[in-house]
Design a protein around this nucleic acid. Structure first.
Length: 215
DNA sequence: ACTTTTTGACCGGAA
DNA sequence: CTTCCGGTCAAAAAG
């Protein structure tokens, strides 16, 4: 794990309870179930200590192995579509970038590249790490939160995707202070001669977002 | 052994 | 004050 908590000053959370779970030895749910049937013993033993667990951290049960994989959940889609008359706000098919003054860039209806990288969602040259997912009231689609994995890079982005994987909306926040990482695995290395590329990008500082008269 | 994803709890601002 | 809600944290799981 990394320590991305730099932006937020250490607060006072000197002690995050984060108590380890008493029974953290089972590897999977199925195994536990099997073990339970065979042995039937009760490994759960209360230590008796007065450890207050504020974050119980619900156990992540393994999802159903092979269930509704091809069923596609059927009824989840809206049936009548009569209620919730909020306008669909369908802009043109082309992607629209709306940049506002606050280092935010919003993309609507991004077309997913045909040859998807599969590894990272909507690959744009940077590496992103997902750190959250919520469901906002406005839309029924879940919103995912990503952060740039480059050290000290404050850029984050929010992505809303439909059930089909189509990207409904992307919101970038901040700007990268580092060049795009190279896609290749090991081009680096060579003896001596260190090539510093950062200078080329560091000189702009105020040139990246000065124009964009819109908004 | 490592990095990334998953996911409920936690936080803070707004109502 | 409480409640609501969007954003973030971090343990566990997954790759």
């Amino acid at each position: 794990g990394s320590k991305w908590k730099m932006q937020s000053q250490e607060k006072i959370t000197a002690v995050k309870p984060v108590a380890s779970r008493p029974f953290s030895s089972f590897s999977s749910f199925s195994k536990l179930l099997k073990d339970f049937t065979t042995t039937g013993s009760t490994p759960i033993t209360s230590p008796g200590e007065t450890v207050i667990v504020r974050r119980p951290k619900a156990t992540r049960f393994a999802s159903p192995p092979s269930d509704l994989t091809t069923g596609i959940t059927a009824t989840t889609l809206q049936d009548g579509g009569s209620d919730t008359t909020h306008e669909q706000m369908v802009v043109d098919t082309e992607q629209q970038a709306v940049s506002c003054d606050d280092h935010q860039t919003v993309f609507h209806n991004i077309n997913k590249p045909i040859h998807s990288a599969r590894n990272r969602l909507s690959y744009d040259g940077y590496n992103w790490r997902k750190y959250g997912q919520k469901q906002v009231k406005g839309s029924e689609f879940p919103r995912s939160y990503y952060k740039c994995t480059y050290p000290t890079c404050p850029v984050k982005r929010k992505v809303e995707t439909t059930l089909d994987g189509q990207i409904a909306e992307i919101v970038y926040n901040g700007e990268h202070n580092h060049p795009k990482p190279h896609l290749s695995k090991k081009p680096v290395s060579s003896t001596g001669t260190e090539v510093v590329i950062a200078d080329l990008y560091g000189s702009n500082d105020a040139g990246a977002e000065s124009r964009l008269g819109g908004c």
